[in-house]
Structure formats: C-alpha cells, structure tokens
Amino acid sequence: MYEFAGEGKHFIAYHNTEKIGHEFNGERFVPGERWNWSTKKSPEQFLGGKIWCVSGQSSPRRYLAYGWYEADEIEAMDDGDFPFVICGDVGFAFPKPVCLNDQPWIAGFLKSQSNFSLGMQQIHPDFVRELEELGRSCRDLQLVVPSDDGGKQAPSTPTQQGFQASPEDRKLIESYAVGWAKEHFEEQGFVVEVVGKPFDLRCTRESEFKFVEVKGTVGQLGEVILTKNEVEFARQNRSQMVLFVVHGIQLVDDAIARVAVGGDVFLQDPWVVDEHGELTANQYRYRLQADGMLLVVQYK
C-alpha cells in the first residue's frame, strides 16, 4: 500500500519527443480511460499530487502543455525502463495544446526544472501559480470526473451537425472549427489560406498542398453536412483532400458575448469522400414534366 505523500504538491511530467520516439498526441487523456504517466521514480511522492503534462518537440524547442490530473493510484508494470504508472480519474484536458514558449515566465520555469532533464519533478510554488492562472484563462478546459458506475461522465449532446442551431450559432461554430484547423496546419509548417467554398483551407508546404474541408458540431462524432459542391470538389481532388471535424463543441454565454469552447478533433488525411464514410441524401430537387396536366384553382 502506497502513502499519499504528494498531497497539495504539483509535479511536471515531461514527454521528450525525440527520446521517446513519437510526438505526444494526448493518448493518455482519452475520455473513458484513466489518465496515466509512466515513471521510473519512487511513485509514493506523486500520490495525491497534481500532475502537469508537457511535451517538447522540434528545434528550436517548442513546449506544449496538455493539461493536468490528480494522481490517485499506482500501477506496477513489467517494464525495466518505466516500472510504475501514475494514474488518475480527475483532471483538466486542454482540447488544444497550450504553447508555453510565449509565456513571460518560461525561462525561469525551464531553469527551475533543469530544462526538464530530471524526469517527473515537483514544481516551485511560483510557477504553480502561473500554470493555474494559465489554466483558468483557457476557456477550452473541460472537467472529466468519474461517474457512479466507474466510467467517465460526458455531456449529453446530439450526434448531428447543427440542425437546431441558429444561424448565429452555426457561424460561431464554423468560425471556431476553421480557426482550430488553421492553427493545426500552421503548426505542421503549412502556409494556410482560408478559402470558404467549395473547401475551407488551402494548405501549402513547399511542393505539397492540401485542400481541407472543415466541419464543426456540438454533437459527438457522427454525421456532418456536406453540400453538393463540397462533395463534387472532394471527388475531383481526392488525393489532396483532408477532412477536419471538431466535434463536441460547447457554446457558452460569458459576460461579454457568446463563445465556442472545448471539443475534440477527428482528422481524415487523405479523405476519400466515397470510401471513408457514407453519403445520405436529405433533400432532392424535383423537376416536373413539361407535358404534365396543369391544374388551375381559383379561390373566392
């Protein structure tokens, strides 16, 4: 039995992309799964503490924060390099990673952590305050807590794209999703142009280019609406098409305006519209035959 020696403390968990061999993609923060981080350090010191998850990648180094969780259990693993897994059920996940490089305190934070070279380390109280303030200012946070049956509670949402949304809300959702997609491809080194119709983004990187169709929905991943022109363009440019869907978006009224927050991304690249999903007609245009009988009705 381990003691909860980390209560009230905060720790950094750092993912070194080059050393581990792959980018951090948020796989530890999947709804319905326990949050977890592997370590070779004595695990008792982390129990009861808050684990802040950060990755570093590329050169010059870019540091991204993914969220935090409360460590409540330790699992032993048959892994000589990382024999312990620090688990937790409660935490905040950033739907979009937060870049730390532009924060005015990042230099001091790196120095206090020896540039994240020492593995999981306790965070100095000065930087705990900065991280918590960063978390509070990020409207994209979504609390995930255990349900009574041991699973995770998630908002109950429809599964289709905005059938009941007002025109204003649909525009807000679309703008939010396009902004997220634009940021994603810019982070991948693409030059991004917002087009609108018959596709949303043109992304260029040297000789490579992509056409990106972006969809946003308040529902969980299910159906999205495609226009006739969008389908035809996707068929004509199948090798360059990408589908970027932000689902689970929430609309929140704050003191100033209505805003879109949260969500998760589904990315299909390349996207072949007739192979990676099923098209269903929800409307037809019916042309009447010219030789049909004309009926004239007069109302008195």
Rank of each mutant, 00 (worst) to 15 (best):
Q188Y: 12
V296R: 13
E73S: 10
S166W: 04
P31C: 00
A234I: 00
N25E: 11
D264L: 05
K40Q: 09
S59F: 06
Q160K: 01
S117E: 15
Q113L: 13
G151H: 04
K50N: 11
D102G: 15
H247I: 03
K182T: 15
Y176K: 03
S239N: 10
H184I: 05
A5D: 07
R235N: 13
K19H: 05
V261M: 10
R170N: 05
Q45I: 13
P167Y: 06
N36T: 12
F92L: 12
Y14R: 03
G32W: 02
P125A: 14
G196R: 05
V261N: 09
I123E: 01
F116S: 02
L201G: 04
D89T: 10
Q153L: 05
I74V: 15
S156D: 08
A255R: 13
L172C: 00
N229D: 12
V128K: 07
L251R: 04
Y14D: 01
V90F: 05
L134K: 08
F116N: 09
E230G: 04
K41N: 13
D291L: 01
M241Q: 08
G150E: 08
G150R: 05
L172Y: 01
N115H: 15
Y2M: 05
T280P: 00
E187T: 14
L100W: 11
T280F: 07
K182Y: 04
S137L: 09
S207K: 10
P158F: 00
I106F: 11
F244Q: 05
V224F: 02
I106L: 11
E223R: 06
I249M: 03
Q103A: 10
T217R: 03
D291C: 02
V252S: 07
G67L: 07
A255Q: 14
E278D: 10
P146E: 02
Y299R: 15
F163P: 13
V246T: 13
L118N: 15
H276P: 07
D148G: 01
I106H: 12
C53H: 10
